[in-house]
Amino acid sequence: MNKQRAQQIAASPVMSHVTYNEIPVYIQNIDEKNETARIYPLDQPNNEQDVPLSNLVEHLME
């Protein structure tokens, strides 16, 4: 995922369907310098982790 789109998703009040290793996640914030995102699995809000933006996948809802 590119940095700009990740920032848009993190700032949006609308939940986007984003996955990390095929697991649905919530993007908390973006570290532009390191090109990482602070995320957590939707079903495990206490399991926060920093991951590369390139490993996030947005799934468009039809």
Results as ranks from 00 to 15, higher is better:
Met1Asn: 12
Met1Pro: 06
Met1Asp: 10
Asn2Pro: 06
Asn2Gln: 12
Asn2Glu: 07
Lys3Glu: 15
Lys3Gly: 10
Lys3Gln: 14
Gln4Cys: 04
Gln4His: 08
Ala6Thr: 03
Ala6Leu: 08
Ala6Ser: 08
Gln7Val: 06
Gln7Glu: 08
Gln8Glu: 11
Gln8Leu: 03
Gln8Lys: 03
Gln8Cys: 02
Gln8Asn: 06
Gln8Met: 10
Ile9Met: 02
Ile9Gln: 01
Ile9Leu: 02
Ile9Tyr: 01
Ile9Asn: 02
Ala10Ile: 00
Ser12His: 06
Ser12Arg: 01
Ser12Glu: 00
Pro13Val: 01
Pro13Ser: 04
Pro13Phe: 01
Pro13Cys: 04
Pro13Thr: 01
Met15Lys: 13
Met15Leu: 14
Met15Ala: 14
Met15Ile: 08
Ser16Trp: 09
Ser16Leu: 09
Ser16Met: 09
Ser16Asp: 09
His17Phe: 11
Val18Pro: 00
Val18Tyr: 02
Thr19Pro: 05
Thr19Tyr: 05
Thr19Trp: 05
Tyr20Pro: 02
Asn21Leu: 13
Glu22Ile: 15
Glu22Met: 11
Ile23Asn: 07
Ile23Ser: 02
Pro24Val: 01
Val25Ala: 05
Tyr26Ala: 03
Tyr26Asp: 08
Tyr26Gln: 11
Ile27Glu: 00
Ile27Ala: 03
Ile27Tyr: 00
Ile27Gln: 00
Ile27Lys: 00
Gln28Gly: 14
Gln28Arg: 13
Gln28Asp: 12
Gln28Ile: 14
Asn29Glu: 11
Ile30Asn: 00
Ile30Gly: 01
Ile30Tyr: 00
Ile30Val: 14
Asp31Asn: 15
Glu32Cys: 11
Glu32Ile: 09
Glu32Thr: 10
Lys33Phe: 11
Lys33Gly: 05
Asn34Arg: 15
Asn34Phe: 07
Glu35Ile: 05
Glu35Thr: 10
Thr36Cys: 10
Thr36Pro: 06
Thr36Ile: 14
Thr36Ala: 06
Ala37His: 04
Arg38Leu: 15
Arg38Asn: 15
Arg38Tyr: 12
Arg38Glu: 15
Ile39Gly: 04
Ile39Leu: 07
Tyr40Lys: 02
Tyr40Cys: 07
Pro41Trp: 02
Pro41His: 03
Pro41Thr: 05
Pro41Cys: 04
Leu42Pro: 04
Leu42Val: 10
Asp43Met: 14
Gln44Arg: 11
Gln44Trp: 05
Gln44Met: 05
Gln44Asn: 12
Pro45Trp: 08
Pro45Tyr: 03
Asn46Glu: 13
Asn46Cys: 10
Asn47Pro: 00
Asn47Thr: 11
Gln49Cys: 10
Gln49Pro: 00
Gln49Lys: 14
Gln49Ala: 15
Asp50Leu: 13
Asp50Tyr: 09
Asp50Gly: 09
Val51Ala: 08
Val51Pro: 03
Pro52Cys: 05
Pro52Met: 05
Pro52Glu: 04
Pro52Thr: 12
Leu53Ser: 04
Leu53His: 02
Leu53Gln: 01
Leu53Glu: 02
Leu53Asp: 04
Ser54Lys: 14
Ser54Ile: 12
Asn55Thr: 15
Asn55Ala: 15
Asn55Trp: 15
Asn55His: 11
Leu56His: 01
Leu56Tyr: 03
Leu56Gln: 03
Val57Cys: 12
Val57Ser: 11
Val57Ala: 06
Val57Thr: 15
Glu58Asn: 02
Glu58Ser: 03
Glu58Ile: 06
His59Lys: 05
His59Gln: 07
His59Gly: 07
His59Phe: 08
Leu60Ala: 13
Leu60Cys: 11
Met61Val: 09
Met61Lys: 13
Met61Gly: 08
Glu62His: 13
